[in-house]
Design a protein around this nucleic acid. Structure first.
Lengths: 121, 121
DNA sequence: TATGAAAATGACAATCATTTTCATTTCTGT
DNA sequence: ACAGAAATGAAAATGATTGTCATTTTCATA
């Protein structure tokens, strides 16, 4: 994690929600932080690689970034015996964020559950 | 719905899953169908407007299209005013199927909902 | 059949986000 | 201080998508 990545991360933290590379660059430039657009792209790539930052897409295809939150998990529940398995749901987080952004929603949360018949039943 | 839109739709039907505008153009050109890339883009836009075709994004941001199926949808709900938007949830279907299979579950169903504050609130 | 307005078409140029290149600068350890 | 490595950013390249505009097609009506 190098210095500009940290500066980018701090900007991302400051804006709160999502921001595109170009927006981040505009903001940092406006605020007197001196940084090149190229460096922003590289920094964001690095942060995404380190899973510190999430990337998703606006409707027009522009990539937007946000700090990774504490990704909450979901449940797989047996309709018959009630056995519950905790599962990973990163795709759901992205889906929720993307759909919400596409429709102009803020302060987004979601629920998702899978139910079926477990192998023992 | 004009003639080229129909030809595009038929191509899309033929390929089955998803295809980008460029891919559709490549396929139609290869198959001797004479059509310009611009017309493909316009036709796809029209089809999306008529809700005959769905648009989504590849990871690299390229737009891909498919015929609207009867794919069941999900809801994006405003916590404040209750406004509800129907949204696409193909990723959810896949996620549910994959996680269920990984854990040996059968007869799988799922629920997923996103909630937040809509742009008017 | 002829005609003219409106819609459709497609070649080409423009736009815009993102990536690549490459010369220069900044670090890092010795 | 010095060499080599990593980081930086300006500018050019890339690639998808959109805009422009002259030409062609469609189609209702005379």
């Amino acid at each position: 994690m190098n210095k500009s990545s940290l500066r980018i991360l701090s900007t991302l933290e400051h804006v709160g929600g999502f921001a595109s590379a170009q927006e981040i660059h505009r903001i940092m430039t406006r605020d007197g932080k001196n940084i090149g657009l190229t460096t922003i792209y590289r920094g964001l790539q690095a942060l995404v690689g380190e899973k510190v930052v999430d990337i998703l897409r606006r409707d027009d295809g522009e990539a937007i970034y946000r700090m990774c939150g504490v990704a909450h998990h979901h449940h797989l529940v047996c309709k018959n015996c009630g056995r519950t398995v905790e599962i990973e749901g990163e795709v759901i987080e992205k889906w929720a964020a993307r759909e919400a952004a596409a429709n102009g929603f803020r302060e987004v949360g979601h629920s998702a559950e899978i139910f079926g018949i477990c192998s023992s039943c």
